[in-house]
Nucleic acid binder design. Sequence first.
RNA 1: GGGGGAAUGUCCCGAGCGGCAAAGGGGGCGGACUGUAAAUCCGCUGCUUUCAGCUUCGUAGGUUCGAGUCCUACUUCCCCCA
Length: 420
Amino acid sequence: MSAAHRFRSEFLRTFVERGAYYDCSAPEDLDALFGKERVTAYIGFDCTAPSLHVGSLVQLMTLRRLQQAGHRPILLMGGGTTKAGDPSGKDETRLLLTPEKIEDNKNAIVAGVRHLLKFGDGPTDAILVDNAEWLDKLEYIPFLREVGKHFSVNRMMTMESVKLRLEREQPLSFLEFNYSIMQAYDFVELYKRYGCRLQSSGSDQWGNVVSGIDLGRRMENVQLFGLTTPLITTASGAKMGKTVAGAVWLNADQVSPYDYWQFWRNTEDKDVGRFLKLFTDLPVAEIARLAALQGAELNEAKKILATEATAILHGRDAADAAAETSRKAFEEGVGAAAGLPTFEIARDKLGAGMAVTALAHAAGLTTSAGDARRQIEGGGLRLNDKPVSDVKAVVTEQDLNDGVLKLSVGKKKHILIKVV
RNA sequence: GGGGGAAUGUCCCGAGCGGCAAAGGGGGCGGACUGUAAAUCCGCUGCUUUCAGCUUCGUAGGUUCGAGUCCUACUUCCCCCA
């Protein structure tokens, strides 16, 4: 990492300056490469869920910055590797996903992140690739003879991920053992197809990245590079990615732009500067000014962080709308601020009156009616901003204002109930 | 192949003489204090139509008035010997 401050290329300087740099396989050579030509680089994601998570955002931002610096990013979807299943990290056997499910996940993931990059056919336009294109067709023996022969089991045994498992005497399946070979092969394949020279990833993928670099040298006699980003944690040491509602997915159908905005708005004080650098495009000088704000003034910086980060993912309009909804709900105290999450309920269901506990549950505000009851007992549930004190309280049409009523748990979780 | 352990509240760790909705943590949620922050303190944390009922302790059977706890088989994992 000592080479980090000596970088001359625009991209790597920015990368370091923004706090995204963790490690690099051959810093000086990569710097020189970035200085003299347009570089094609990739990051891979498996299709295990229908959306990526904020934890993947640093990687996605890497592709974005690459493109901004005039290079060409490849977004590699692991349609093939997901079929094999990546057991790394977990001791439980992950259930195998069906090919249809993988395909659906892939399409959903891509749809969710398309604003982050500009795709197309131009020289710096991003390319979308699926490793199923080549992995699906592999034949076992030919693959072993052409690729497998370059891997030394002795060396693989010394890889951090493998070594750790062996030392802890945790099981390591042969499938898992092979995973890094497939990932290494991806890198070489992308080099052959697109002249891709660099693989970026989270620091946990270091071993797999290095395998790809080695394979490139052995099979194609080319120098490939690896560049990793740090695991982002909050100042309190927790892994990033929880909101009042659960995991922070990137797709809008799972976490709305409003909730996404709120996630960033609730950043801890100490993280504001770091997150602005990592997750927005604001100039660092501007960020330095914002991060220097003290006390309650930092809230202004948090709003900017929220709006900028949301704009990158969901577009400027959605970000501004989320900011406006938040302003009304939290600063003006407008009860039923338009734009808050909304739940619709049929008029006849409410007609005879409905228990608040049942309504809170139906609207997804609480996990069960019992949970809602406990919230009432703890003074945490409010109807139209007034605390509900009676567990058996019933909601009727009289609680409606213009056909809408607001239900809240705690200070931050609000939902509008609209009668239709 | 032989022997010995383990699987608990579907977030995680983890106690549990045959009377257990099941100790204790962590995490999460709510309240107070604040600035929609952190820290701190307090409460809650299986479901329901809650003076009660119902479903939980790897799976399936069995013993018993009664089983997380005892027995049998199975599954998975760990350890030791070969």
